[in-house]
Amino acid sequence: MLRPTLLLDEFLPFRLSFTSNLVSECVARTYEALFGLTIPEWRVVAVVAEAGGVTQAMIGARTRMDKVTVSRAAIALVERSLVVRTRNPGDGRSHLLDLSPAGRALYAQVAPKALELEQRIFAELPAGEIERFVATLRRIDAITTALETER
């Protein structure tokens, strides 16, 4: 597999990033048009909906978004009264984020759209191929996580 020269379009890290960006841009246009949400805001809403009572650091770890991106998204969502911040009793330096009633209502609208969009994007791939693809992505996640700990 080792090639003597780097060809960007054949470089797998680039291909992953390129395709991920295409999918994210498609999703972003939909969320922005229908719900006025950016991708980071949607990711914060989704993590908070799944877990509830989470810190921004937990959201960053779960989504791989940097602190500044998570913070800006959380601030925007609090300003829109979609997320509520409360002091973290376990750590006075952080806050817990939860969805407000308006945030839960928004999530109830966005989640089905997200699933519909996922279906539209991947509809032409057979189920077995998607399962293998997800398994491969998870293996890549594990390998790169292990590489990070080596540094």
Rank of each mutant, 00 (worst) to 15 (best):
L147C: 03
L115I: 11
E129T: 08
M58E: 14
R43A: 06
P101I: 00
L137R: 04
A146E: 11
G52R: 04
E118L: 15
R64D: 13
G128L: 00
F35D: 02
Y31K: 02
A102M: 06
A33L: 07
I75H: 12
E32V: 01
A114Y: 03
G60T: 14
A127Y: 08
L7C: 05
F18M: 10
V54C: 07
T136Q: 04
V48S: 08
I39L: 15
L147N: 02
Q109E: 15
A49W: 11
T63L: 05
T136L: 10
E131S: 05
K67R: 09
P89M: 12
R132W: 02
E116G: 15
Y107H: 10
L12A: 05
R120P: 00
A74M: 10
Q56S: 13
Q119P: 00
V134A: 12
T19R: 10
S20T: 08
A74L: 14
R151S: 00
G60N: 11
K67M: 09
G103I: 03
T55I: 06
V45A: 06
R104D: 09
Q109D: 14
P13I: 07
L137Y: 06
P40N: 04
Y107G: 00
I143M: 07
L137S: 02
P40W: 04
D91E: 08
A49T: 04
T19V: 14
R80F: 04
M58C: 00
A111S: 10
K113R: 14
T38Y: 01
V83L: 10
G90N: 07
L77W: 08
E116M: 05
I39A: 08
R43M: 09
P101M: 02
V27R: 15
Y31R: 06
L2D: 06
R87G: 05
V54Q: 06
V110R: 01
A28C: 07
W42I: 08
T149G: 00
P13H: 04
R104L: 04
V27Y: 12
L82W: 12
I143L: 14
R87M: 11
L16G: 01
E79C: 01
A105F: 03
M1N: 04
V44K: 08
A74N: 11
L77E: 07
